[in-house]
């Protein structure tokens, strides 16, 4: 366990030193603060709280941004060390291969957690100073932060898997970008296309919610649209999801499974590799 901790701390320290941590915090803070202020303009007359609007708009941006940051942090976990020659060296130390993967992964997830907590947290703080909010609203904001982190965990795990699979950093980067496009954009467009083409309504509501649950990015989106009572009002998709939205447990379960499976796969692949 000592080795896992050492590796996690080292990964975190590297993140600090190469400005990753600071960069991600600033990015998340800028984003959330600007949404918190700008987001309230269009709903000035609606009876929807500023916080609810922020939760929805932040969630719909995070679904693109958090996976991108997580992949950027993790895609070269192993392949980067392999290229620098430090992986070979690291494995001559009393460290098991699973400890390398898990330790580095924990370090990345720690960076993501810190960036989300501080970045989104400061917008939350500002909102708290400006408006009085309901406890339910804060619960939704907290759920949004926690689920954003979980989404980051999913894509960091996927990034680790990519980094274990390929032998070149450039290939890993290409795969990471492809994966991001596929899961965050193409999947949604495909489902949307299916719905449009489905004039005879063969695609049942349960099937639709299954499709939403299967993709972690959509699971995250639906989760954040349904946690907030008011958010169904401000989100167009919410009305669609409201008909048969999957339970929050199922949605979170999807995120957890999408974290565990890629990590296990990365461990499996890395364990069997010849260096």
């Amino acid at each position: 366990m000592n080795a896992v901790l050492a590796l996690a701390l080292e990964e975190f320290r590297e993140g600090l030193r190469n400005r990753w941590v600071v960069g991600a915090i600033i990015l998340f803070a800028t984003l959330s603060l600007s949404l918190a202020f700008l987001g309230s303009t269009p709903v000035g007359e609606l009876k929807v709280s500023r916080l609810a609007v922020t939760v929805v708009s932040l969630a719909s941006l995070s679904v693109y941004l958090v996976p991108l940051i997580a992949l950027a942090l993790s895609f070269d976990t192993l392949v980067g060390e392999r290229e620098r020659g430090t992986l070979l060296l690291l494995l001559t130390y009393p460290v098991a291969r699973w400890q390398v993967v898990i330790g580095k992964y924990l370090g990345q997830v720690l960076i993501l957690g810190l960036a989300i907590a501080l970045g989104y947290g400061c917008a939350g703080l500002v909102l708290a100073l400006v408006d009085a909010e309901t406890a339910g609203g804060w619960r939704a904001y907290g759920a949004m932060m926690a689920s954003s982190w979980l989404l980051g965990c999913v894509f960091a795990a996927l990034g680790c898997l990519i980094s274990a699979l390929v032998r070149q950093r450039a290939t890993a980067m290409g795969l990471a970008i492809g994966l991001w496009l596929a899961m965050v954009l193409v999947y949604d467009l495909t489902v949307l296309g299916l719905l449009m083409a489905d004039t005879e309504q063969r695609l049942s509501a349960p099937m639709f919610s299954a499709l939403m649950t299967l993709n972690p990015a959509d699971a995250y989106r639906v989760f954040n649209l349904t946690t907030l009572d008011g958010s169904a009002l401000v989100s167009g998709v919410g009305t669609l999801g409201a008909q048969s939205s999957p339970s929050t447990g199922l949605l979170l379960g999807s995120l957890v499974i999408w974290t565990i499976l890629p990590l296990l796969a990365a461990l499996f692949v890395f364990k069997r590799q010849e260096l």
Binding site: R13, E14, R17, N18, R84, G85, T86, L88, L89, T92
Partner: peptide
């Protein structure tokens, strides 16, 4: 103890 032929420690550290 092992010293590999090519090793490049993390430059930012």
């Amino acid at each position: 103890g092992f010293l590999p032929e090519h090793v490049a420690f993390h430059g930012a550290m």
